[in-house]
């Protein structure tokens, strides 16, 4: 299913939200093309619209104008099950209760493949165990979600995305609560996945040093606009210098 065509293509897209019939656009005139194999980070100040961008690409926020095309199909023409096979998302919201364990959360990634009573096949189980071991959660997998630390919970959410096995992965600030080494491990893992599994991975983050070290492309979000830059271009950009506050030197 993975082809040479762009993984994600935004055509004149406006994103935002509608609340009690009032429309607020957060990002306007977005035009970018991302390919499979790209590991892209979205950077920008708090409240600049990074999450909105990711949620919109996942079809969770309405598109106010324009088109989102994923793997040659406009997402408006895709059903929820079809979209769930193309795009997985990790959000920042904390979830717990109802006896949910780390394993249960990761297993949600395979829910479309489970039977009528949500029982998993052996193939699904091995996919889930693999995702858990990649994220180094094996010893924590039977803990309840509220027993996990914030960092472990973030790893659980990432493992869910891995278990969903989608060609496009969208992660919203996945590294915020991770310790130093885990942050590096995560970015290394995502880079590896993008290249070896030919995935298109989009991550929003504030870790500018990691961005420069591991990513292939950067999306800068600023003043309702997005710009797609290569790492070299980003280093030259005034905006990037502003974002880093001048604390990063190359």
């Amino acid at each position: 299913m993975v082809t040479n065509s762009p993984a994600i293509k935004l055509i004149d897209a406006d994103f935002g939200y509608t609340k009690s019939s009032k429309t607020t656009s957060v990002l306007t005139n977005c035009n970018i093309e991302l390919n499979f194999g790209d590991f892209v980070t979205v950077i920008g100040n708090n409240g600049s619209g990074k999450s909105t961008l990711l949620k919109s690409i996942a079809g969770l926020n309405p598109i106010l104008k324009g088109e989102i095309v994923i793997n040659q199909t406009n997402i408006n023409n895709l059903s929820y099950p079809q979209l769930s096979e193309l795009v997985s998302i990790a959000l920042t919201q904390k979830i717990s209760g109802f006896n949910l364990t780390c394993y249960d959360f990761v297993a949600m990634g395979q829910i479309q493949k489970s039977n009528l009573f949500n029982q998993l096949s052996n193939e699904s189980k091995s996919i889930i165990s693999h995702a858990i071991s990649i994220c180094k959660l094996t010893e924590h997998q039977h803990k309840l979600l509220n027993e996990l630390s914030d960092g472990l919970f973030q790893k659980t959410v990432i493992a869910k995305c891995l278990a969903q096995q989608t060609p496009v992965m969208l992660l919203d600030e996945p590294s915020a609560f991770l310790d130093y080494s885990s942050k590096h491990e995560l970015f290394l893992l995502l880079k590896e996945l993008a290249i070896t599994k030919n995935k298109c991975i989009l991550v929003s983050t504030h870790e500018l040093d990691l961005v420069l070290k591991y990513c292939s492309k950067i999306i800068l979000v600023n003043a309702n606009k997005i710009n797609l830059l290569t790492v070299e271009e980003a280093k030259q950009s005034e905006l990037f210098k502003k974002l880093s506050g001048g604390f990063i030197s190359f």
């Binding site: 949620k55 996942a58 969770l60 929820y80 096979e85 998302i89 979830i95 949600m108 829910i111």
Partner: peptide, 11 residues
């Protein structure tokens, strides 16, 4: 159990 956004994303 995971809320609206994840439910949609899970298909």
């Amino acid at each position: 159990l995971l809320g609206e956004k994840y439910t949609n994303n899970l298909g």
